[in-house]
Nucleic acid binder design. Structure first.
Lengths: 223, 223
DNA sequence: GCATGTGAATAGATTCACAGCG
DNA sequence: CGCTGTGAATCTATTCACATGC
């Protein structure tokens, strides 16, 4: 298999996990790893690991396993992590500040190159060593600081508007933390992280467990 | 379709989105909504909306659409949101504090009933109106405060240990923000939110766009 | 007539199972 | 002989298309 045929979405989502495990493995000075071992550590199935890795090419050795360093390089290259990426955070609330301070983003070349808000009390402040600028400065900064990724941490009511401004500013990859459906043009990639949806999903599965106490799956004692 | 046959995972993940849209729709005093309209607002396909909703039962009216209030109730019931849920956050770093302060969790009956850390400088402090307690108190609090959900916001190196203590304390639903694979027994539901993985996925798709400039998809100018 | 509800068709992801190679 | 690489089989999810019923 060669370079261009694109990788299934589900595989792309797992490559970063493999990469992290491989980096840890390399730290332990282990030179080679089997799909079985990688699968156990990733909480997956060995056949899946092999199939996923096969989309990158044939970098394993039969009877031996995968060379850890080689695989780190190949996955990094495939994910585009051989270059550095600059991101802008729009919305300097609790979450925006937490992200700005989050160590472990550098995990693979991500840098927050800008923090934006419209609140005059926040503009001019410094958070995590970055000066908060007015959202109006975003467009010029995208060019000047080569910002490629936008992170939305504003309230839901402003999320679409912020996304529109990001797109207008030339950003084509967005990570949305606001609890709102945001639509963007086809050439813009958007992903969402929605904390309250995650909790609701957990609640569903949790209810299935405890709700089984009554005969008909009725609701259990609420608090 | 009746009560027990369980709902596909993909559908469960979308129900909270529909619910949110329906709540907004209700705010605008609109009594009825079509699958088409719901689909547009959720960024989905009308057939999918109908199929998803059909797992809850037949709550639509042909030729008309769905009664907004009725659907809100049915989805809420299915997701287990007719009861309140208490969650504990373990790890009072930037992210843990941001979550504790996050308004909009109450969006459907979630309450943070406990904040835990092991750092003596943090234990005893108050964050978002909640006293930070030592992780050792978790087990007793799970019982006393009926905590059902655990949220992990500690560094990756401690995530598994914290998860183990949550499980030992009787928690059976966990949301993990630490960039680490955490394993739990089968009867425990775990979901992960991994910020750096999300950025890496964006980087992949971003690269596909810009990386096409060179003939062979080689890496572009790094900064 | 119009929008739901749903079988049937399609697409996508996971797992199996084994041939192929070091 | 052991572990990769991958077609084939299976399972899950999405989309189509239309019969059904208000």
């Amino acid at each position: 298999m060669e370079d261009l045929p694109h990788i299934p979405e589900a595989t792309v989502a797992r490559l970063p996990i493999y990469l992290r495990i491989l980096l840890e493995t390399a730290d332990h000075e282990i030179g080679t790893i089997s799909s079985e071992r990688l699968a156990v550590q990733a909480g997956a199935n060995a056949a899946q690991v092999r199939k996923d890795l096969s989309y990158l090419g044939s970098y394993g050795t039969r009877g031996v396993g995968y060379d850890v360093e080689l695989l780190i390089f190949q996955i990094s290259r495939e994910l585009g992590l051989t270059q550095d990426w600059s991101a802008a955070i729009v919305g300097v609330g609790h979450l925006g500040q937490a992200l700005a301070n989050y160590r472990g983003f550098g995990e693979r070349g991500f840098r927050f190159a800008g923090l934006y808000d419209v609140d005059p009390r926040k503009v001019g402040e410094t958070v995590a060593g970055i000066e908060v600028r007015h959202l109006d400065s975003l467009a010029e900064d995208v060019v000047a600081r080569r910002i490629a990724i936008g992170v939305i941490t504003v309230p839901a009511s402003h999320a679409q508007e912020v996304a529109d401004r990001m797109v207008a500013a030339g950003i084509t990859a967005i990570l949305n933390f606001a609890p709102a459906v945001v639509t963007v043009p086809d050439d813009v990639t958007i992903r969402k992280v929605d904390l309250s949806i995650e909790l609701q999903i957990l609640a569903y599965y949790q209810q299935r467990k405890t709700g089984m106490t009554g005969l008909l799956g009725h609701r259990a004692a609420a608090l």
